[in-house]
Amino acid sequence: MIELAIEQRCRDLGGFEVGRVLPYAKRRMVGPFIFFDRMGPVEFPAGLPRSVDVRPHPHIGLSTITYLFEGEIMHRDSLGTEQPIRPGEVNWMTAGRGITHSERFERARREGGPMDGIQAWVALPEAHEETEPGFEHVGGADLPVWQEDGVWGRVVAGEAFGLKAGVSTFSPMAYVHLVMDAGARAAVPDDYAERAAYIASGSVEVDGRRYGAGQMLVFTPRQPVTLAAAEPAIIMLLAGEPIGPRYIEWNFVSSSRERIEQAKADWRAGRMKLPDLDNQEFIPLPGEPAAPPNPMS
């Protein structure tokens, strides 16, 4: 039933830690999900330095989805979007042929407070890799939820448990937030070829074996799986159909290595527009020196 258990690998971003889960050497993707990072949990002090912010940077070939359990992040992008994201909401940004954005911890800087959430990247099918960039924000009240037998669930993106989120996905997938009481049981949908569960807190048992916070369980295709909460637990389910292999380098995802090289050249040369409301700095390509403000700002 469990094909692989992945332990998140902690990385210090100069002010807080993230737990990297995907990509993993033995499992690059789950369905279209190609990147999965746990941000926090951390308690930020008021006066947090700006160096902790994620400065403007580019993406191609993917959609990003930021989902918070606690805290607030301010998103700004090259489409002119300025949108805070708060717990239970969805920021769904489609890079397609190219987008840039920043993520700022402005509320924490003013007030201090907790930060805890997930950033995931969903690779686009080849037919949509060069689609026009876009951004959608969906409030928590507009996402479908259910509650039954000690399990509360919200469909964040895609379709699962007979419910569908109002987010414009490009391939069959599901992304679900579960909150389980101790002793509760939840069946993992088996209508997708690839499925996994990330344990954000607490612990669950599968086939009599216990797994804990920070682990992602990748399940055998099409086999029935039931999660049994050994204690109160928060789970993120991710599932979908495979879309084929992808190259990933820095913030770029593509079915073509040449396309990634082109994106790197475009960023290096200043041909990717910076966010309209955040255009005074940016992150250079890894290993390359910082440069003056991007001329496309």
Rank of each mutant, 00 (worst) to 15 (best):
I73A: 01
I73N: 00
M74V: 13
S78T: 06
S78Y: 02
L79S: 10
G80F: 05
G80C: 09
G80P: 07
E82N: 11
I85Y: 02
R86G: 00
R86S: 00
G88W: 00
V90Q: 07
N91Y: 01
N91H: 07
W92E: 00
T94D: 00
T94P: 00
T94K: 00
T94V: 09
A95F: 13
H101Y: 05
H101I: 04
S102L: 01
S102T: 03
R107Y: 09
A108W: 09
A108Q: 13
R110E: 12
G113E: 10
D116C: 07
G117Y: 01
I118F: 07
Q119F: 09
W121I: 04
V122N: 03
V122K: 02
V122P: 04
P125I: 02
E126K: 11
H128W: 08
E129G: 00
E129S: 03
E130R: 10
E132R: 11
P133C: 14
G134K: 02
F135S: 04
E136L: 10
V138K: 01
G139K: 09
A141G: 09
D142K: 13
P144T: 03
D149M: 15
V151Y: 02
W152C: 04
G153F: 02
V155G: 03
V156W: 02
E159T: 08
F161I: 05
G162Q: 14
G162P: 14
A165P: 03
S168N: 10
P172L: 07
P172Q: 03
A174P: 06
Y175H: 15
Y175K: 06
H177N: 14
H177V: 04
V179I: 14
V179W: 05
A184H: 14
A186R: 08
A187C: 14
